[in-house]
Design a protein around this nucleic acid. Structure first.
Length: 112
DNA sequence: TGGGTGACCATAG
DNA sequence: ACTATGGCCACCC
């Protein structure tokens, strides 16, 4: 195993590439990394993103349903929504509005 | 080596 | 809307 090829580091890199005002899903990131089935690991990686050297916009990552499932892992449960709305993303009842419009898929934007 | 775990996903009822 | 179940795979002990 090579250093730097860690799954976590790879996840962080992709998450940092998410444009402002856009969101993506754990599964999409996992698929982009090649581990489509291990979408859980993406979320888990976010858990470790908390203390990363570089800023990781974990609030731009939601589940497949557009729900802010990971909000409970932020400093405060409402921080995730505030950050999203600050970027122009509408969130109502912990769910992303206009998800089809703001959805950002790394497979579609990065890997052509 | 093996078992437990998880910010998911899909399906079923 | 809800819970339950199976699968999946990287991480940690």
């Amino acid at each position: 195993m090579k250093k730097g090829d860690d799954f976590f580091q790879n996840v962080f890199d992709v998450v940092r590439l998410i444009p402002k005002g856009r969101v993506t899903s754990y599964g999409a990131i996992a698929k982009y990394l090649g581990t489509a089935q291990s979408s859980r690991m993406v979320g888990w990686a976010m858990n470790a993103a908390h203390g990363q050297k570089q800023y990781v916009p974990a609030h731009r990552v939601v589940n497949r349903n557009g729900e802010l499932t990971g909000k409970h892992h932020f400093a405060t449960p409402f921080l995730m929504q505030e950050l999203l709305e600050k970027e122009g993303v509408k969130v109502i009842k912990d769910k992303i509005k206009n998800l089809d419009t703001i959805y950002w898929d790394p497979m579609n934007e990065l890997n052509l």
